[in-house]
Nucleic acid binder design. Structure first.
Length: 750
RNA sequence: GGGCGCGUAGCUCAGCGGGAGAGCGCUCGCCUCACACGCGAGAGGUCGCAGGUUCAAAACCUGCCGCGCCCACCA
């Protein structure tokens, strides 16, 4: 409640009740700051727990001094270059929030409405009429013309003549304009100031007068009919009718005027209920009105082509998201309405001089000096004035408006790069590499950021845009507070661990929605536990690592090198889910096949050299795998890393295939590993089908395969015999792979 | 009205010109000295529908159907 004074003792109720509590503006701002501090803590705890690699010394707030200065500086520079301007213009307006809103904050909603067919009399004649159809008859007092398509022969005789509005008997011209659609309604439309954006176009193009009747709170009020600008052939009737609409909101006024139309015989037929699409402020409950008001704008319409080109220069991940940006830019129909009639926000660094009558001179704004920023024109005094001159004729007044929040957010790269405050840093980091964000704010955060960088730096703000989908609830529904289906991150951390949640999140591709999936998180948890156990096992081998001489050891490392290179390529293409998949596939084969194959040799079954080769290969693989999994499972990998390595795995280098195996220049060939794993798997299958334990001895197996693969198999036969408890391995050349297995007879074992 | 994306095993998805796949779930078996928070195995699909191109189509082209989203001057 703006009239209340600051109350230092004010305490909000412990629990919010239904009753609104009046509070002064300074107290309100204080509470906002308290809540913000709490929320910041909550977010930091959440981000830390998630294991995000945030540099916590590089934080900023969008209302903080650095951001206010950057926002105001960027704004002033646009004003000086003529790219930001103040103008009285019809703008989309929310009658509940009582502020202008930008095109980006508007959304369409389908609502129930009614079309009424209404007759306008042609003046000075014998009962000729033009009929129109409208869903907003309450705007008839604001009607300034009737419009038809120039090619519409039905109405050609009327163009240039004068019609009289029903009820109010206001003379309005019948005019022609291309945008009038012969197919819609009757083909003739009333032009009102202002019913929608099309009205604004007609009003501007056809240079029509304005008769505004919608006030900023959404209620109706007209001028006095009969006076200049409000001509009427029957002023008394017009004023009497208007008296019935005065002060009513659009919806109520609509009912009222339909009655007046009916009484006067101007209503043709009965009103027809329809579902139609109406523009709403995304946070609003009532349809937007178009209201003329003084606002700050930033030029965008003249830049469409340049902004489309910026969109083409940007690397989109996935690529099709660039289409959304393009269709948004192509559909722009107004400059960016930058000012908001709100309490909280970054103020404009602007004052207006007051003339001798105490009226603001909007054409001559007084701009702050860059060196003084940030300023608050409500407290600070403009250059050349004294505090006593505030609000008095010949003095000045501060611009009361604040900027659209996107005015600050669109400077994120500049603010984070300490634009103008640290030129060396800025030079090094701008343009940045990557903007990660979801697709819902392409038209706002992404678009405005591209716009600001284009205007201020003649460049893109970053080279890549990684556009994610939404996290949906477990039933694939969009989460919303009102539906009560919001899943709080801390809940899933508690249930599954941060690494498991990251695993699930990393499995979702950019651009596609992902539903909260407990099963998938359990799989992630299982992978994490498997890494812990396998690592413990590898590091428990007592044999000293030696030279990697065994063919199967080298082959496993070749397979690992390929997996790592595939994962690297996937990451380079912003396909983190694919990178994870490749690594995971290798890892499960590593534990299920390779570890089983070399387990006995690593224990020493084939002597010191064989053990040394196995242990060295195992450790080399583990070292690489931990680094490769580190971005996905930061806690698990860091834990294992701490068992045997110095420092943090997150500061170690990303692994490359070349460091694993190519050092000696030999060719990569994972063949021995693949063939041995296939044979081991075939033997396990026989045991499973026979429903016997996997340690059941095997008398002999006969491997049928091509000569090449049999030669590879020979290099791993000792490991294979140990792993499968096989006494003899026979080979037979064949075109296709198969294994005959002869299990040992139970009585033979006795 | 225009556009984008998606429709593959019960579920979540990968594959995007030459063998129909993975994980989960389900069924069966196994306490094998890293892990029973585990291990092994099995069953399960006319790849939305209809045409076309091709020696060959889940994949390419055309049309349709369904779902989701974006944009639109919606009188």
């Amino acid at each position: 409640e703006p009239s209340l004074a600051y109350d230092p003792a004010f305490q909000p109720p412990a629990k919010p009740g239904k009753e609104q509590v009046p509070i002064s503006r300074p107290n309100f701002v204080e509470l906002c700051e308290r809540l913000t501090a709490e929320d910041e803590k909550t977010f930091e705890e959440l981000f830390r727990r998630l294991g995000l690699s945030v540099d916590w010394q590089q934080t900023y707030t969008t209302i903080g001094e650095v951001s206010r200065r950057a926002s105001q500086r960027a704004f002033l520079r646009l004003v000086h270059r003529g790219l930001a301007y103040t103008a009285e213009a019809p703008t989309m307006w929310d009658v509940d929030f009582r502020t202008a809103v930008a095109q980006a904050e508007i959304e369409d909603r389908e609502v129930a409405g009614t079309y009424q067919r209404i007759a306008f009399d042609i003046e000075g004649d014998d009962g000729e009429r033009i009929e129109i159809e409208t869903s907003r008859p309450e705007l008839i007092p604001a009607c300034v013309a009737l419009v038809v398509n120039p090619s519409d022969e039905r109405y050609a005789p009327f163009v240039g003549r004068t019609a009289l509005t029903p009820v109010f008997r206001v003379p309005v011209p019948v005019v022609a304009h291309e945008l009038a659609d012969p197919e819609k309604g009757t083909g003739a439309a009333q032009v009102c100031t202002f019913g929608d954006v099309t009205d604004v176009v007609w009003w501007r193009d056809l240079e029509l007068p304005a008769r505004v009747i919608v006030r900023r709170d959404g209620t109706l009020a007209a001028g006095r009919f009969g006076e200049p600008g409000w001509e009427s052939r029957d002023p008394d009737a017009a004023n009497a009718a208007m008296a019935q609409l005065e002060g009513k909101a659009a919806k109520q006024a609509r009912k009222q005027i339909v009655e007046l139309l009916r009484e006067g015989g101007w209503l043709v037929g009965e009103p027809e209920p329809v579902q139609h699409v109406v523009k709403f402020y995304e946070k609003g409950d009532r349809p937007l009105e178009v209201i003329s008001s003084r606002q700050w704008f930033v030029s965008t319409l003249d830049l469409k082509d340049a902004l489309l080109e910026r969109g083409r220069q940007l690397s989109w991940h996935p690529a099709f998201m660039g289409t959304r940006y393009a269709s948004w830019v192509e559909g722009l129909n107004q400059d960016w309405a930058l000012s908001r009639q709100r309490y909280s926000g970054v103020p404009f660094p602007v004052w207006f001089p007051l003339d001798d009558d105490g009226e603001p001179v909007y054409d001559a704004p007084i701009l702050a000096e860059e060196a003084e920023l940030p300023v608050d024109p409500q407290d600070d005094v403009p250059p050349g004035f004294t505090a006593e001159q505030r609000g008095v004729p010949g003095g000045f007044v501060g611009d009361p408006d604040v900027m659209d929040t996107w005015a600050t957010s669109s400077l994120t790269p500049q603010i984070a790069g300490r634009w103008e405050d640290d030129p060396d840093l800025f030079e090094r980091v701008f343009p940045m590499d990557l903007r990660p964000q979801a697709h819902d704010i392409i038209r706002t955060w992404l678009f405005y950021t591209v716009l600001r960088a284009h205007l201020e730096h003649d460049s893109l703000p970053w080279t890549n845009a990684a556009i994610s989908g939404f996290v949906l609830d477990p039933d694939r529904k969009k989460m919303s507070k009102s539906k009560g289906n919001v899943v709080v991150p801390t809940e899933v951390f508690e249930r599954h661990s941060a690494d498991a949640v990251r695993y699930w999140a990393a499995s979702a591709r950019l651009g596609y929605d992902a539903a909260i999936d407990d099963q998938q998180m359990k799989v992630g948890r299982r992978l994490a536990i498997k890494i812990l156990n396998a690592s413990r096992f590898v590091l428990s081998m007592e044999a000293a690592p030696g030279e990697i001489t065994e063919a199967v050891d080298r082959a496993m490392l070749c397979a690992l090198a390929e997996a790592v290179d595939d994962a690297t390529a996937a990451f380079d293409g912003y396909e983190h889910a694919k990178a994870l998949d490749v690594l995971e596939t290798f890892f499960w084969s590593f534990t299920d096949d390779y570890l089983e194959l070399v387990k006995q040799r690593a224990y020493g079954a084939a002597g010191t050299d064989g053990a040394g080769s196995a242990v060295a290969a195992l450790r080399a693989a583990l070292d690489v795998l931990l680094r490769a999994f580190a971005p996905f499972l930061p806690y698990t990998t860091e834990e294992v890393w701490s068992w045997w390595r110095e420092g943090s795995v997150h500061r170690s280098a990303w692994p490359l295939g070349s460091e694993v195996i190519d050092a000696d220049g030999s060719e990569r060939d994972p063949g021995v590993y693949e063939v041995a794993a296939a044979v081991l798997s075939a033997v396990r299958k026989e045991k499973a089908l026979a429903k016997v334990s996997l340690k059941t001895p095997v008398d002999s197996i006969t491997v049928h395969d091509t000569g090449d693969r049999l030669r590879l198999l020979s290099q791993a036969s000792a490991d294979l015999r140990e792993a499968g408890n096989i006494r003899a391995i026979d080979q037979a050349e064949a075109d296709t792979f198969s294994v005959d297995t002869v299990l040992a007879q139970p009585d033979a074992a006795v």
